[in-house]
């Protein structure tokens, strides 16, 4: 099945749910409301789509999306500085609070050899979405992972525990406001003969700042990117 047929099918069967449907790099992305996930998943799993395999569920935190550590365009009048400004509160306003988190599903159909991506956005305050474990059993661990790393909560998940982080860990480490080095470090303390936790004593530093360039204009053939 070609993507074009898939687009037609989506328009026919999911016209009410779909907010946005894009094709980029020969990949289809379906943006839906998080409340519709179960009904959309149910339709996509069954005929005529037959997306019988869930490849992946992935959380994304859009808090710092499109923010650079180092302004490359506007700094010319005062000269470039290598110093990095920490992302300030002012900048963070750019992010829509109701769309901070993304929960992204990758589906594959073994029957038609097609793939599709479902994208939902979740608010900062209560990132809750229905679990799809009943529809695709593979979702179980992927949802646990998204919960562990991003704090996305899945309704009716059979066993929503942490999966990758340590026993007794409190934060959701892949959120963009969680520092790379974490808050606590662990070491063996000879004096007390115990493993102890202490606050991290290393300062975070950026070796290569995150920057934006228009360099891709030389290699990209897509019109869309050039216009941005």
């Amino acid at each position: 099945m070609q993507n074009i047929e898939l687009i037609n099918l989506v328009n026919k069967y999911l016209a009410d749910e779909v907010i946005d449907l894009t094709e980029d790099c020969q990949e289809l992305t379906l943006v839906i409301n998080s409340a519709d996930i179960l009904s959309v998943a149910d339709i996509l799993k069954n005929s005529p789509f037959n997306f019988n395999m869930l490849m992946d569920i992935c959380g994304v935190d859009y808090l710092h999306y499109g923010l650079s550590d180092w302004e490359t365009d506007s700094a010319t009048s005062i000269g470039f500085a290598r110093g990095i400004e920490r992302l300030s509160k002012k900048n963070l306003k750019l992010i829509q609070k109701d769309k901070r988190y993304g929960c992204i599903y990758h589906l594959q159909s073994l029957k038609y050899n097609t793939r599709i991506r479902i994208k939902t956005f979740l608010p900062e305050q209560q990132p809750v979405i229905d679990s799809v474990t009943e529809i695709w059993n593979a979702a179980n661990w992927y949802e646990r992972e998204a919960f562990d790393l991003y704090g996305i909560l899945f309704n009716n998940h059979p066993d929503l525990r942490r999966i990758l982080t340590d026993y007794g860990f409190v934060h959701h480490p892949f959120r963009k406001d969680f520092p790379l080095s974490g808050y606590l470090e662990m070491r063996y303390d000879g004096a007390t003969s115990k493993v102890i936790y202490e606050p991290v004593d290393i300062d975070e530093r950026e070796i290569i700042p995150k920057i934006f360039r228009d360099d891709t204009r030389y290699i990209n053939t897509s019109e869309e990117v050039n216009n941005e």
């Binding site: 980029d24 790099c25 490849m55 793939r115 360099d215 891709t216």
Partner: peptide, 15 residues
Amino acid sequence: FSEGYTLPVGEVYAA
């Protein structure tokens, strides 16, 4: 080597 190359805005899944 000092700042690498930038990619266009977008998302992609490669397997």
